[in-house]
Design a protein around this nucleic acid. Structure first.
Length: 476
RNA sequence: GGCCCCAUCGUCUAACGGUUAGGACAGUAGGUUCUCAACCUACAAAUCAGGGUUCGAUUCCCUGUGGGGUCACCA
């Protein structure tokens, strides 16, 4: 059987990291077994539709290199891939159900339903449709519809039957049809609900494995029922764990970081995020935690997914991000860093700085704070300088010496290193203290990239100017 | 609340029914070092509880507890 898998997001907001995780496992499964990965847009809810959300989704998929074979933008032979463009298909299919007496028209007003619901809530019962319209003769119902009366179409759930969902990760799960609602399949605006659309589309698009979040498990028996009613072969059901916040709730903006843009804006690399995501819910090969998407697609199998909802631990992502940053070539890193810099700096100079900082950052956002001193001047408090570096006389003497020697030294790293270490040795200065003094004078920071390399890049003019500034500062 | 799912270090996760319950991140301590990192070494840290089954349960079964999901003309 040809493997065909899909993600089916709805365009109701900016892309969710959980959607990317779904994309990752679907894409990887398809890749591994030479199947097809498809994106279908589930835009049947016009109230929640957000303009531009679809575009954002595809640009996110592109960023992660998880591009589908078939989709609304790439096309494919099972299109259209937007549900709003498939209305006729659903209408045709649902009529089959009406014919078979497996679905029925319901004329109940939203008000009546609301009332019934409140009674149920009061009695502590689960909220379900009371099946009032189920008894209407189909001939009569059709007449009323033709007369223009507003109606929805509901699924006719059998009264007391066992329905089995065969889930790949959990085995057979048994539901009693009593707990299943006569689900609305077609809304009064003529749009299908998820339940109808997903079954029809997955079947017609020849989806072999329906891989989706565990939040769908409760409604899966309805879908199974639909496959039976239509007389179609069921796909393999795979309900994946839901990614959680540190407080174990479903990953959300409130308690965690759910949107792809947050990760992007906070200086994470797409490969690192992907690596991190692939670790979630998956029994990775022993003692190997760093691997690329290509490697992942070699090992990944749906069977190795665990049904336990993993918690997102940003500390681990930070670590992985650091690993990826260190493994990125300086030239590539340059391009990645630039969008995060507010200061203006020449590419050539930035390229010189990158080796000094790449192993001390975990996120691209940390770059600016480390390197702004190359460009910007800063205010230094004399108290700070003296507290960290010794007495006024000592600091003054040291600064004067350094200034003197740097004035006409040959300006390259080796020479600078030699002369400065000379000063320390000859005078028997406290090395740590001396370097801290220089560090503060030149960068205004207690923490900075390696000092001698920084001096080399700063250049003679700037270095001397800053040292002079510090000198005059403590003289006052 | 009904129904459903799940349960190994703080977190991500290993362990044909037999292991000193392993690794990674985070933590702690030390080494290296001009600071911070990176790197190296060490330490600490878990089988939810109670019953079975078994010569032997992290592993299989039951109950409890805990967590999660779901109960829409939303997906």
């Amino acid at each position: 059987m040809k493997i065909r898998v899909r993600i089916a997001p709805s365009p109701t907001g900016s892309p969710h990291i959980g959607t990317i995780w779904q994309a990752l496992i679907n894409y990887s499964y398809a890749k591994r077994y030479k199947g097809d990965f498809i994106v279908r847009i589930e835009d049947t809810d016009r109230k929640r539709f957000i303009e531009g959300a679809e575009k954002e989704l595809f640009s996110a998929l592109k960023w992660f290199s998880l591009e589908p074979l078939e989709s609304p933008i790439y096309g494919g032979s099972f299109g259209p891939y937007r549900q709003s463009e498939r209305l006729k298909i659903y209408q045709k299919q649902v009529l089959k159900l009406i014919d078979k007496d497996k679905a029925y028209y319901c004329f109940c007003s939203p008000e009546r339903l609301e009332q019934a619901r409140q009674v149920q809530v009061k009695k502590g019962l689960s909220v379900m449709y009371d099946k009032k319209c189920r008894e209407i003769k189909s001939g009569e119902a059709i007449k009323r519809v033709e007369a223009g009366e507003k109606a929805v179409i509901r699924l006719k759930v059998p009264l007391n039957e066992k329905i089995i969902v065969k889930d790949l990760l959990r085995g057979e799960i048994e539901f009693n049809s009593q707990v299943l609602d006569d689900q609305v399949l077609v809304k009064s605006d003529g749009f299908p609900t998820y339940h109808l659309a997903v079954v029809v589309d997955d079947h017609l698009m020849e989806i072999s494995h329906v891989v989706r979040g565990e939040e769908w498990l409760s409604s899966a028996p309805k879908h199974v029922l639909l496959y039976q009613y239509f007389g179609w072969l069921e796909p393999v059901w795979v309900h994946t764990p839901i990614i959680r916040n540190p407080d174990k709730s479903k990953l959300s903006k409130r308690h965690g970081h759910a949107s792809v843009s947050w990760y992007k804006n906070n200086g994470y690399l797409s490969q690192a995020i992907l690596n991190f995501l692939s670790l979630l819910g998956w029994s990775h090969p022993k003692e190997k935690t760093v691997f690329s998407l290509t490697e992942f697609t070699k090992y990944f199998d749906l069977r190795d997914l665990s049904p336990v909802g993993p918690v997102v631990d940003l500390k681990k992502l930070d670590y992985l991000n650091g690993v990826y940053i260190r493994n990125t070539k300086d030239e590539e890193l340059l391009e990645l860093i630039k969008p995060f810099l507010k200061i203006k700096i020449e590419d050539s100079q930035l390229l010189k700085i990158i080796p000094l900082i790449k192993e001390r950052i975990n996120k691209l956002t940390e770059v600016e704070g480390l390197i702004d001193f190359f460009v910007n001047d800063f205010k230094l408090s004399p108290e700070d300088l003296l507290v960290k570096s010794g007495t006024k006389e000592l600091v003054k003497k040291q600064l004067e010496e350094v200034i003197k020697i740097l004035k006409d030294v040959k300006w390259d790293l080796e020479e600078i290193t030699r002369v400065i270490q000379d000063i320390v040795l000859k005078n028997d200065y406290h090395k740590g203290q001396f370097f801290m003094m220089l560090r503060l004078s030149l960068t205004g920071k207690k923490i900075s990239p390696p000092l001698l390399e920084s001096i080399d890049i700063l250049g003679r003019e700037k270095t001397l100017k800053r040292l002079q500034n510090s000198l005059s500062l403590i003289e006052n």
